[in-house]
Design a binder for these strands. Structure first.
Lengths: 202, 202
DNA sequence: CGATAATTAGAACGAACGTTCGATTTAATT
DNA sequence: AATTAAATCGAACGTTCGTTCTAATTATCG
C-alpha cells in the first residue's frame, strides 16, 4: 500500500532537481509509449534519460511511482488547459469545440504522455490506481457537463454515453494518426465537432 | 523473419489437437486481456490453459506466434459475422446498424479476444505485424464503405475520418463497459447509431 | 498386444527484470 | 579551500522471463 505524497524536495541547493525529474518523466513517457509499461524496463528509461540505472531510484521509489507521477502530471496539465479554454468560450457549442480542440492539440504536442495515460491505467494498482481514477473522473465530468449542455431538452440522448463515445473518437487517434500523412489538427477538430453535433447523414 | 504459414496438422490420429489449440488461445486472450502481452508470461498462459510450460511450444513456436494466431482468428470471425449481417441489410442505414450491432455484440461475447486485438497490434513485428495489418485493413475498408454510403453526396464529411471516429467510439468501450452496471448492448448500439447519424444536437 | 506417432512433463539455459547498497562524484555553503 | 549535502554510479541480489532439450506419457493403429 504505497503512500501518495508528492515528494517535497528539502530545500534543494541544486536547482537541477526539477529539471532532471522532468527529463526522466519525458524519457519514461517516450519509452512507455513505444513498448508499453510492462515492456519499458527501468534500464531503458534510464538510458533514454541519460542517467544510470540506479539514478532513477533517487527520483522515484519504484517503477509504479514513476508511472503514477507521469499520469498525474499529464492529466493535471490537460485539465488545466481545458479549464482555461472553457472560460473563454461563450456558447455551449464553443465549449464543445474547446473540449475537442484542447484534446487534439494537447495530443499533438504531448503524444507520448497522453498515449501512456490513455492505455496504462490498469498497469497501476492500489492507491496509485485509485488516485489516478479520481483525476480522470474529474476530467470526464468536466467534459460530460459540456456535452450535456449541447443536448436539447427532451432529447433521448444519454449524456454519459455520449461523452464516452466522444472520448472514444478523441483517444482512438493514437491508433491511426501520422503527423506526416494526416491533415492538420484543426481540420480534424472541425470534422469531429460537425459529426458529433450534426451526425454524418445531414 | 518468421514464416506465416498456418500449421497444417499432419493427419492427426488424436483429434484433441484443435481443441487443445483453441483452449490455449482462449487462455492466452484471457491472460493478455488482463495484463497485456508483455505482462502475459508464457508460464501464466500455460497455467491458465492447464498445460505445462513447454507444452505451449508444441502448439506455437514462439509467444509472438501465439499472439498472431489469436489476432488472426479473432479478426476473421469478426469480419465473417459482419459480412453475414451486411448481406441481410437492405438500406444504407441498416448496414450501418449492422456494423455497430456486430461490433458491440462481438465485443460482449468475446471481450478478451477483441481487447487483445485492439490494443496489442504494436506488440507484433515483422511479418506478423504486416499480416495483421492487412487483415485489419480489410475490416476497416468494409466499414468505411458502409460509412460512405451514409454520407449524402455533396457533404463536406470525410469518409475516412468518419470511419476512424466511429472505430474510436466502438473500441473505447473497453475502457468503461461493465456488464453489471451498463445498459444492454442493444441500447448502446441504438444510441451510437443515432448520435453518429444525426448528432447529439438535433 | 505391440508398435508408432502425438502429446505432455521436467529440468535447465542465458538473458533481462526491479530493486538495493555502498562508494564516488558533483555542486553549493561557509 | 574545506565542509556538507545532493546527485550519480557500478556492482550485485534474487526472480522471472522466453525458449530448448530429452525423457516420459498417452492415444491410435495394425
Amino acid at each position: 500500500m504505497p503512500e501518495i505524497i508528492t515528494k517535497t524536495a528539502p530545500n534543494r541547493r541544486n536547482r537541477q532537481y526539477e529539471k532532471r525529474l522532468d527529463s526522466i518523466l519525458k524519457a519514461a513517457s517516450k519509452v512507455m509509449a513505444e513498448v508499453g509499461f510492462e515492456g519499458a524496463s527501468v534500464r531503458k528509461v534510464a538510458a533514454e534519460a541519460k542517467i544510470g540505472l540506479s539514478g532513477i531510484y533517487y527520483y522515484f521509489k519504484s517503477k509504479d511511482e514513476m508511472l503514477f507521477a507521469l499520469q498525474e502530471s499529464t492529466f493535471s496539465r490537460l485539465a488545466d488547459t481545458l479549464k482555461d479554454r472553457l472560460k473563454k468560450a461563450e456558447s455551449s457549442k464553443e465549449k464543445l469545440k474547446a473540449v475537442i480542440d484542447n484534446h487534439f492539440h494537447f495530443f499533438s504536442e504531448h503524444m507520448d504522455d497522453l498515449k501512456v495515460c490513455s492505455y496504462e491505467i490498469e498497469s497501476l494498482s492500489g492507491e496509485y490506481y485509485k488516485e489516478v481514477l479520481k483525476i480522470r473522473r474529474r476530467y470526464f465530468d468536466l467534459v460530460k457537463e459540456v456535452v450535456a449542455e449541447n443536448i436539447p431538452t427532451g432529447s433521448l440522448i444519454d449524456p454519459d454515453l455520449s461523452a464516452l463515445f466522444l472520448f472514444g473518437s478523441l483517444n482512438w487517434i493514437f491508433m491511426w494518426y501520422d503527423p506526416k500523412r494526416n491533415a492538420d489538427i484543426n481540420s480534424l477538430s472541425k470534422q469531429l465537432l460537425k459529426i458529433y453535433l450534426e451526425g454524418i447523414a445531414t
